[in-house]
Simulated assay, not measured.
Amino acid sequence: MTDSIPAVVPAGRMAALAQPTYTLPGGMLLRPWEPHDAPALVASYADPDIRHWNRPDPLTGDRAVTRIARWRERWHTERAAVWAVAASEDTVAVGLIGLADFDLRGGSAEIMYWLLPAGRGAGATTEGVSAVTRWAFGDLGLHRLRLTHSVANPASCRVALKAGYPLEGTMRGALLHADGWHDEHLHARLRTD
């Protein structure tokens, strides 16, 4: 009977936490999204790599501001934790790193990320994934985090491995992209790793 198994992360723990800001090596910040970051969400749809691997929605500036407000709400309702990658508190974001598909009772979530060209090449994704991983295990108390990506995306595979997410296997035909069904690599970490 599952009622006799306590929740790994009790309801309300995440909502009680303030979303932290982290300084990443190389001078980038991982911080909460702000309304002034809306242009980054609009630009993410225009970037062919982000559009191909992440399937973002086309957004106007107003819809992007609404999306950012929804991410803040999802923090408080314990359904997602999404950070902006930016050069400072005041500059527009150049990327996104976060957790979605929460199962707080079961203690798991999925890492997601993308970077615009202006943020690529300095290791911000790997360092940001590592920071979010430490927060998820240490502060939130999750047990398992997973990271998936198309097998045709070796850059994401490098990020996963550098951030300490070993490859667990390949999920066949797991995600539909514009060019058809892609097999996906499944990487994961446990709090005890």
Rank of each mutant, 00 (worst) to 15 (best):
M1K: 03
T2M: 09
S4H: 15
P6I: 00
P6H: 09
A7W: 11
A7E: 14
V8W: 08
V9H: 06
P10N: 02
P10S: 07
A11C: 01
M14I: 07
M14F: 04
A15L: 00
A15W: 00
A16P: 00
L17M: 06
A18V: 05
P20D: 12
T21Q: 09
Y22S: 01
G27P: 05
G27S: 09
L30T: 07
R31G: 11
P35A: 14
P35L: 09
H36A: 10
D37G: 04
P39D: 07
A40F: 07
L41F: 03
L41R: 02
V42N: 09
Y45I: 05
D47E: 14
P48M: 10
D49A: 08
I50Y: 11
R51F: 06
H52D: 08
N54I: 02
P58G: 12
L59E: 01
R67V: 10
R67W: 10
I68V: 12
E73L: 05
E73A: 10
W75G: 00
W75Q: 01
H76P: 00
E78Q: 00
E78V: 00
R79A: 09
A86N: 07
S88I: 08
V92S: 05
V94I: 14
G95K: 02
I97T: 13
I97N: 12
A100S: 08
D101A: 11
D101K: 11
R105C: 02
R105T: 10
A109H: 04
P117H: 09
A118W: 03
R120H: 03
G121Q: 08
A122F: 00
G123C: 11
A124G: 03
A124L: 06
T125K: 07
T125W: 10
V129K: 14
S130R: 15
A131P: 05
V132K: 12
V132G: 08
V132Y: 07
W135R: 12
L140M: 10
L142A: 01
H143Q: 13
L147E: 08
H149T: 13
V151W: 01
N153D: 15
C157I: 00
V159K: 15
A163D: 03
P166V: 01
P166L: 02
P166A: 06
L167I: 03
L167A: 08
E168Y: 01
G169D: 04
M171W: 11
G173R: 01
G173D: 11
G173W: 00
A174G: 09
L176I: 15
L176E: 15
H177T: 15
A178M: 05
A178Y: 05
G180D: 09
G180V: 11
H182Y: 06
D183F: 00
E184F: 03
E184Q: 15
L186R: 04
H187M: 02
H187Y: 06
H187L: 02
A188P: 03
R189P: 10
R189I: 02
R191F: 01
T192K: 15
D193T: 13
